[in-house]
Amino acid sequence: MKRAKLSPGERAVRIFGYILMILAVIVALYPILWVILSSFKTNKEILSSGLSLPEHFSLDGYKQALEMAPIFQFFATSLMISVTATVLNVLFLSMSGYIFAKKRFRGKNILFWILSLSMVIPTTALLSPVFTVISKMGLYDTKAALIIVYIALSMPVSLMILRSTFSAIPDELEEAARMDGAGFLKNFFLVMIPCAKGGMASAAVLAFLESWNEFTFALILTSSVSTRTLPLSLSYFTAQFSFNYTALFAAITIAVIPSIVIFAFFQEQVNQSLVAGSVKG
């Protein structure tokens, strides 16, 4: 941008812009920094002033937090559920997305329209019957229950992303593969999938974020410690760490930091995925 002389109006606009940027950074970072700083303070320091900096950095809070709550176990549970749900979601919706993009059969448009309904139904409305269905299947309080539900929650976005991804692959490619004698499966896995990697990555990122952060269904579909996911475990912290604020803040920090680190590394990919997934309405 040229550094030409700015009119007073332009200058005001620019200053306003910088103020907004600074405020945005403060709003986004302050709450998290406050929690991290507080996790190094002693209980007494926390209670005497919420704003002061820790007098010396002690890791006692972290030690106590990990002793009092099996945070790494919640972590592992969350990871296992999210990864499985993401992989299955992308696999299933690549399969159906491919069919909707490339194949013709009677009732295709009606079927697609029906599946698209999942986009306009607020899933919170379905809490009670989903609970009933999962219980009737004997899956209450199992990891499988959450995996199935999370595959479904990410279904609408994945369907849209993957259908358009496969639509963008030229038909000639498939024709050529068929000429070479590739069957249905070979064509799908060896020709189509490699061309659809970008869309699949976007769908995977969004599905993973959705599963990793989901709270409501985890709350109603599980009860025991062995199926407790990380977001859900946060709701037990207040009771678990009663009046041990240092440990409480340490536990929140442990729960939050990995997401931030991973996001910092993959933010370009996450941003692209969000744009690809913004297909609502």
């Binding site: 945005a24 950074v25 709003v27 986004a28 970072l29 709450p31 998290i32 406050w34 929690v35 974020l209 990793w212 952060n213 709270f215 990380l230 977001p231 859900l232 946060l234 709701s235 912290f237 207040t238 929140i252 729960a255 939050v256 997401s259 931030i260 996001f263 933010q267 996450v270 941003n271």
Partner: peptide, 16 residues
């Protein structure tokens, strides 16, 4: 940075 609160789980934000 502004995206961070949207990436971490909402329950963590709630607890904060």
């Amino acid at each position: 940075v502004y995206m961070i609160p949207n990436i971490i789980s909402q329950s963590a934000i709630a607890m904060i």
